[in-house]
Amino acid sequence: MVDNLHRRQPEDKRFINLNESWEVSYWTQALGVTEAKLRQAVAAVGSGTAKVKAYLGK
């Protein structure tokens, strides 16, 4: 299967995938945070979007 290189948003928005650079860019813009802050939040509470948003106060 070939990856879709023109994705605009994650397939499953319930989780944040830090292994894809385009997805990191998506989430930093969507949440209004730096990459470092996003990575810190995921390290602290896991990759669940709801938990990351709560951690960041969003």
Rank of each mutant, 00 (worst) to 15 (best):
H6Y: 15
W22K: 03
G32W: 00
Q40W: 05
L56V: 04
K13A: 12
L18V: 10
S21T: 13
K53I: 05
T34M: 06
S47G: 08
L31P: 07
E11Y: 07
G48C: 09
K58E: 08
H6R: 08
R14M: 04
N19H: 09
W27R: 02
L31V: 07
Y55R: 13
T49Y: 11
K13Q: 13
K53L: 08
A30E: 15
A41T: 02
K51Q: 13
N17T: 10
G48V: 07
E11M: 08
F15P: 00
D3M: 14
Q29F: 05
S21V: 14
A30W: 05
T49L: 05
I16V: 13
Q29V: 01
R14L: 03
T49F: 03
D12T: 04
V42W: 05
S25F: 15
E11H: 03
L18Y: 15
S47M: 02
E20A: 07
L5A: 06
V33C: 12
A54M: 10
F15R: 15
S21H: 09
T34P: 06
R14C: 05
N4K: 09
Y55V: 08
G32K: 03
Y26M: 01
K13P: 12
W22R: 04
K53W: 03
L5I: 11
N17M: 03
L5W: 02
E23Y: 09
L38C: 12
G57K: 07
Y55M: 06
Q40M: 08
Q29S: 11
L18K: 10
V42R: 01
P10L: 02
F15A: 14
V45N: 02
K37N: 10
K37L: 15
G46N: 04
Q29Y: 08
M1L: 04
L18G: 00
Q29H: 12
V52T: 07
A44F: 00
Q29K: 15
Q9R: 13
L5M: 10
R39K: 15
F15T: 12
K13Y: 00
L38Q: 02
N4E: 13
N17H: 12
K51R: 15
S47T: 10
D3F: 13
Y26Q: 02
L18C: 09
R39Y: 11
P10Y: 11
D12R: 13
R8I: 12
S47E: 11
P10I: 07
V33W: 03
R7L: 15
L38T: 00
Q9C: 05
A44L: 00
V52M: 03
H6K: 09
A54W: 03
I16E: 06
V52H: 06
